[in-house]
Design a protein around this nucleic acid. Structure first.
Lengths: 234, 234
DNA sequence: CTTGACAGGTGTACGGCGTACACCTACCTT
DNA sequence: AAGGTAGGTGTACGCCGTACACCTGTCAAG
């Protein structure tokens, strides 16, 4: 009777509920602490119950990725291919900022998921519609790489550290640690530069949104130049 | 006595020997199957012995990364900044092709290792010497992102599948699986294009080296254009 | 020559992980 | 009423990283 109440209290599991809970857990605790056992606990269920809805952890990750990719705004038709791509890529970036674990998860996959293939397929379509040859479109996809999906893919990624370690992060050092500054003077100088738009700067002296758009436009403009001069293979 | 012989047969462990064995193991079996236990076995030693030379698995990975980064050719001084960068980046790419696990390992690290900081610091130095303002150099570093380290960071990475699953790989499908081609026509078209230099093409119709250089030059040329027009912050 | 510190390899053990497999139970169909 | 089926349970196995106590050979100081 108490058990019956217990059973009724929680909604029945479903692939969708599992995926949603997994994404939420990864968002707030970091992907590295997402385990089948913790996820099951979160859902008030025994670990093995999950396997009735996902076939294994890898497939769970696939589902999570597809869920995230599904949040990206669809391509809006636009006579200007550049504007269309730019807009969707920036939307993708917003999504990936909400789910900091997703970029790495996507990159670790050997094969793209259906949702990603859909996304990329549409992007290629937009290029073709914009007058790109198959060949040039091909090279463009490579050149954009994962930036096509909104990754900034920095080497020094300050944003990624998922799952704040507490209510108050222990104040990340605003500048280089001085000792390091001596050893890497050029990096220190660069870290100090940071002149642009101090308002939207987070902790470091570096506006990630600006940097992303800077790089994105650099690529898009370069690509446009190739297209305009009627680039053909090689 | 037999034990003594056993003890003498193998060279004593050292941090360096551990790191080297770890890199070799990751190269041939894939990073995901590199465990402290397997590594120890490879070295003819009990797992805990490793902890006398590396403090934990994470620090082992740091050491492996530094070892790999150390293989990259140093910057050769060159009056032409573009040539200098290009050359070193292509060298980095060669190294990462030898160690397919390294790109992801580097990207997963939250903080760069000393060797990486050294590498990047020198690259910034080359930019500064080439006449870049601190600000522009900063943006360039972001724009290049991990391509600065020789990553191609593809979404559809055919190369990465580490540790061949057997002597003869079961013939990767040279073309799109047909069913997928119907669903993602633009991607299929692109995959088919592949007109350039069929000689150096691996299995897919796609020359990775060409694509990497294409993207690299697109970026470098765009950057050069900014520099030439005396770009100042914003 | 003894002693004792110390560097480095060993053995055992713990808790966490993914998941195979047998089970049970509520419900739906016939 | 009978039986199939979808979905949650319990137990167990083998792998992982690594804490901790231990042993052993080497070498310097007394």
């Amino acid at each position: 009777m108490a058990e019956q109440a217990e059973t009724l209290r929680r909604a029945p599991l479903s692939r969708d509920r599992v995926l949603r809970a997994a994404v939420a857990l990864a968002d707030e605790a970091g992907i590295e602490s997402l385990s089948m056992r913790k996820l099951a606990q979160e859902l008030g269920v025994v670990p093995m119950a999950l396997y009735k809805h996902v076939s294994n952890k890898d497939e769970l990750l696939d589902g999570m990725i597809d869920a995230v990719v599904g949040e990206i705004e669809p391509l809006v038709p636009d006579a200007d291919w550049k504007r269309a791509l730019r807009r969707r890529i920036l939307s993708a970036r917003q999504v990936l900022l909400r789910h900091p674990w997703a970029a790495l998860a996507i990159e670790s996959k050997l094969d793209a998921t259906p949702a990603i293939l859909d996304y990329l397929n549409a992007m290629v379509g937009a290029l073709r519609d914009g007058g790109f040859s198959t060949d040039l479109a091909h090279h463009v996809m490579h050149a954009m790489g994962s930036r096509m999906m909104g990754f900034s893919q920095e080497l020094f990624d300050t944003s990624r550290r998922a799952g704040r370690s507490g209510p108050a992060d222990p104040a990340p050092p605003a500048t280089f640690p001085a000792e390091a500054a001596a050893r890497f003077p050029h990096l220190a100088a660069i870290a100090g530069a940071a002149s642009h738009d101090d308002a939207s700067v987070v902790g470091e002296g570096c506006d990630d949104q600006f940097e992303f758009e800077f790089a994105l436009d650099l690529l898009l403009d370069g690509i446009d130049r190739l297209r305009a001069q009627g680039w053909s293979s090689r």
